[in-house]
Amino acid sequence: MTPAREGTLAGGLPYRAAGTGPPVIVLPGISGDNADPTGGDRRSQLRAFRALTGQFTVYVINRRPGLAAGATIRDMADDYAYALTREFGEPVAVIGVSTGGSVAQMLAADHPHLVSRLVLVASAHRLAERGRRAQRALARHAEAGRPRRAWASMAPALAHRAPGRWGFTALLWLLGARMTPADPADLLITIAAEDGFDAWPDLPRITAPTLIVGGARDGFYSPQLFRETADRIPDGRLLLHRRKGHAGTSAGAATVREIRRFLTP
Rank of each mutant, 00 (worst) to 15 (best):
A4H: 08
R5A: 11
G7P: 07
G7N: 03
G7I: 09
R16A: 15
A18G: 14
I25Y: 07
V26E: 05
D33M: 05
D33K: 07
N34E: 06
N34C: 11
A35S: 15
D36L: 09
P37F: 01
T38M: 02
Q45Y: 14
R50M: 09
G54E: 15
T57V: 07
T57E: 12
V58L: 05
I61M: 12
I61T: 15
N62P: 03
G66K: 01
A68M: 00
I73H: 08
D78V: 00
A81E: 06
Y82T: 15
E87C: 02
A93V: 02
G101D: 02
S102V: 09
A109E: 10
H111Q: 04
R117C: 03
V121G: 02
S123C: 05
A128Y: 04
A134E: 07
Q135N: 09
A137Y: 00
A142T: 10
E143A: 12
G145H: 10
R146F: 14
R146S: 11
R146A: 12
P147L: 06
S153Y: 05
A155R: 04
A159C: 14
H160L: 00
R161H: 14
A162N: 04
G164W: 06
L172C: 00
L174C: 12
L174T: 14
L175C: 07
M179F: 15
D186K: 07
T190R: 05
A208S: 10
I212N: 06
V213H: 03
G215R: 06
A216P: 04
A216D: 01
Q224N: 00
L225W: 12
L225Q: 13
R227S: 11
T229I: 10
R232Y: 01
I233M: 02
D235A: 15
G236Q: 07
L238S: 02
G248K: 01
A253P: 03
R261E: 09
R261H: 14
